[in-house]
């Protein structure tokens, strides 16, 4: 039984092919203006990698912000439910999921079966999201994927006080002008986001184990900052960015079982 999970996020599209309770393959591509076409391409690329064909798929579930507009899926489920399912499958001890995605961040309480018990999401602004880090990386002239390693070099603590993306960007530019080291600024940014995420997370009953999911969990500096602040048992999946798509694929296989 082969199924697919698609996570159409604001910055990236993820596809996971799932067979007999195993991840057979996955692909991550950047989101563009034609999300439908890109989603289809992303899925087809994954199928090619796993040596399958579109018609082999017995069910497809979509999640993420673009979930509604994709025409070739069987069902759409929110990313909150999907991240809970995905994280639970990867690590059954997961009781809390912190998903930091491109345009929002979510904290989800999960039970032993991977069901959502409660959740909170960030406010309307981009603070504490992947987009925030992208803007800052741009201001610093660093690639987003290099932010993590750069920040680990930091020796001096810098506090970033602004959380509005525009204000923080100008704060970063001022700090560069003052001659502050890039790595210290980046660490400051990670800590600022981590503080914001943690204050949101504390609205829920934070229970171990805490799984970090979403693209931002690939940033080692961010993970360090969160671990330091959370003082909890933290689990980072090998590929945190596909947890939503994985959850969608598992949901797709459950649809088949229930039928």
């Amino acid at each position: 039984m082969i199924v697919a999970g698609l996570d159409i996020g604001s910055l990236t599209i993820k596809a996971v092919i799932f067979e007999e309770n195993k991840i057979k393959g996955f692909t991550i591509v950047p989101t563009g203006a034609d999300a439908n076409k890109l989603t289809k391409d992303c899925l087809e690329l994954t199928l090619k990698r796993t040596g399958n064909d579109f018609k082999d798929l017995q069910a497809i579930v979509a999640t993420g912000y673009g979930r509604i507009s994709v025409p070739f899926t069987d069902k759409s489920i929110t990313e909150i439910t999907c991240h809970a399912i995905g994280a639970n499958w990867l690590n059954p001890d997961t009781r809390t999921v912190i998903d930091i995605g491109g345009q929002d961040s979510k904290v989800i309480s999960v039970d032993q079966d991977g069901r959502v018990v409660d959740f909170v999401m960030n406010d309307k602004c981009a603070a504490g999201t992947g987009r925030f880090l992208e803007v800052m990386a741009n201001a610093l002239g660093v690639k987003t994927e290099e932010l993590g390693n750069e920040s680990l070099k930091s020796k001096k603590k810098i506090t970033i006080s602004s959380m509005c993306t525009v204000f923080a960007e100008s704060e970063v530019i001022s700090l560069i002008a003052e001659g502050c080291a890039k790595e210290d600024i980046i660490r400051g940014l990670h800590e600022a986001i981590s503080n914001r995420i943690c204050s949101m997370a504390c609205r829920l009953r934070l229970e171990n184990t805490i799984a970090l999911t979403g693209g931002v969990a690939k940033n080692i500096g961010m993970v360090h900052a969160l671990k330091k602040r959370l003082k909890a048992k933290v689990y980072v999946p090998e590929e945190p960015q596909i947890v939503g798509a994985l959850g969608a694929a598992i949901a797709a296989s459950r649809i088949l079982y229930s039928e």
Partner: peptide, 25 residues
């Protein structure tokens, strides 16, 4: 979280995700 009269504070997708996730729960 939302606004009763100022539509500029309304995000269709974000609101939908919150409501749907809640109902899925």
């Amino acid at each position: 979280d939302g606004d009763g009269a100022d539509s500029r504070n309304y995000s269709k997708a974000q609101t939908r995700t919150r409501i749907e996730a809640f109902l899925e729960m």
